[in-house]
Amino acid sequence: MPLRSLCSLLLACIIIALSITTVYAQPTLRWGSQGGDVYDLQGRLKKIGYYHGKIDGIFGRQTYWAVRNFQYRFGMKVDGVAGKQTWSMLKRATSNLPKKSQSAVSTSYGLSANDINLLTRAVYSEARGEPYEGQVAIAAVILNRVESSKFPNTISGVIFEPRAFTAIADGQFWLTPNHTAKKAAYDAINGWDPTGGAIYYFNPNTATSPWIWSRPQVRRIGKHIFSY
């Protein structure tokens, strides 16, 4: 084969190889993304202990929190979005990982032990004595606030935001929570949201703010009304 033709053939092969690399580069994934790349993301996060749910190819709450916790532990911007930097770090973290370390990298459901403790305390102090669904709903509201741009993007930031929760002001937040409150917190983390996305709640028997009554109401569970 003439040298010129050989060079042309090699150049064509290089172009094709570069094109293939571009085509198969993982896209940016965020809440609501679906498909094969999400399966890959969940599988990698599960391999190193950050994801504990079903690998279903749907980027929902558990995947979101798993990504956030991974980003935090590896010193990246914590936004719950699997972009170029997150993918790069994730591939490095899952390559040649010793089997004995695969289950000890993170805490349950992509949250720290402190996050879960704070969420459990909030449920107990704000909703003990409420029906179980109502306790899950309180935890869901807190998680919904974390995901909303209107509030701080951490559980501690949401809970300790000034004047956000009565239990913080009156000290009841520091009561020792029971097993039911912890279970309710885990159910909310695992995706159960009885409120359908509410970010506020109030007791109509004690609420005095005209503003909270003006919010679009979703439903009532026990003594609380949940709203947007």
Results as ranks from 00 to 15, higher is better:
51 Y>K: 00
217 Q>H: 08
71 Q>G: 01
198 A>G: 01
83 G>M: 03
224 H>G: 10
3 L>S: 10
44 R>C: 05
121 R>W: 09
162 P>W: 06
228 Y>W: 15
126 E>I: 03
182 K>G: 09
31 W>R: 13
100 K>F: 15
161 E>G: 13
82 A>M: 07
60 G>Q: 07
214 S>A: 07
183 K>F: 11
28 T>M: 06
184 A>Q: 01
65 W>R: 09
94 T>V: 05
41 L>R: 00
187 D>P: 01
173 F>S: 07
209 S>R: 09
134 G>P: 00
218 V>Q: 14
178 N>H: 04
120 T>H: 02
222 G>V: 02
35 G>K: 03
189 I>Y: 05
147 E>Y: 11
190 N>T: 14
143 L>M: 01
157 G>R: 06
29 L>S: 06
41 L>S: 03
109 Y>W: 14
89 M>F: 10
211 W>C: 10
126 E>W: 10
93 A>V: 04
128 R>F: 09
216 P>E: 03
111 L>E: 00
123 V>A: 05
207 A>Y: 05
13 C>N: 15
210 P>F: 03
98 P>F: 02
201 Y>N: 02
47 K>W: 02
96 N>V: 11
182 K>R: 11
59 F>V: 03
88 S>V: 09
8 S>R: 15
39 Y>Q: 12
138 I>Y: 03
225 I>K: 02
187 D>L: 08
159 I>G: 00
23 V>N: 09
189 I>Q: 06
196 G>A: 01
137 A>N: 02
150 K>L: 13
189 I>F: 05
157 G>I: 06
119 L>Y: 04
15 I>A: 14
219 R>E: 12
208 T>R: 12
55 I>T: 07
43 G>I: 03
69 N>T: 08
116 I>Q: 07
102 Q>G: 06
106 S>W: 00
127 A>S: 04
175 L>H: 15
122 A>Y: 13
148 S>I: 04
188 A>D: 04
144 N>V: 04
68 R>Q: 07
36 G>R: 12
104 A>G: 15
77 K>G: 13
83 G>R: 04
140 A>Q: 01
146 V>K: 02
220 R>M: 10
190 N>E: 15
188 A>F: 01
97 L>A: 10
94 T>D: 01
148 S>M: 07
181 A>C: 06
145 R>G: 05
122 A>T: 13
11 L>F: 11
53 G>R: 03
69 N>K: 10
24 Y>F: 15
51 Y>V: 00
116 I>H: 06
24 Y>I: 11
132 Y>G: 03
105 V>K: 14
167 A>Y: 14
197 G>P: 02
183 K>Y: 12
96 N>K: 12
228 Y>R: 14
71 Q>H: 00
39 Y>M: 14
213 W>C: 07
194 P>T: 02
50 Y>R: 00
53 G>M: 05
103 S>W: 07
142 I>P: 00
172 Q>T: 14
47 K>T: 04
81 V>N: 06
80 G>L: 04
118 L>D: 01
38 V>G: 06
129 G>F: 04
65 W>E: 07
79 D>S: 05
217 Q>W: 05
89 M>W: 08
173 F>I: 10
218 V>R: 15
45 L>M: 04
193 D>V: 01
66 A>I: 00
66 A>R: 00
6 L>A: 13
126 E>F: 07
61 R>F: 08
95 S>H: 13
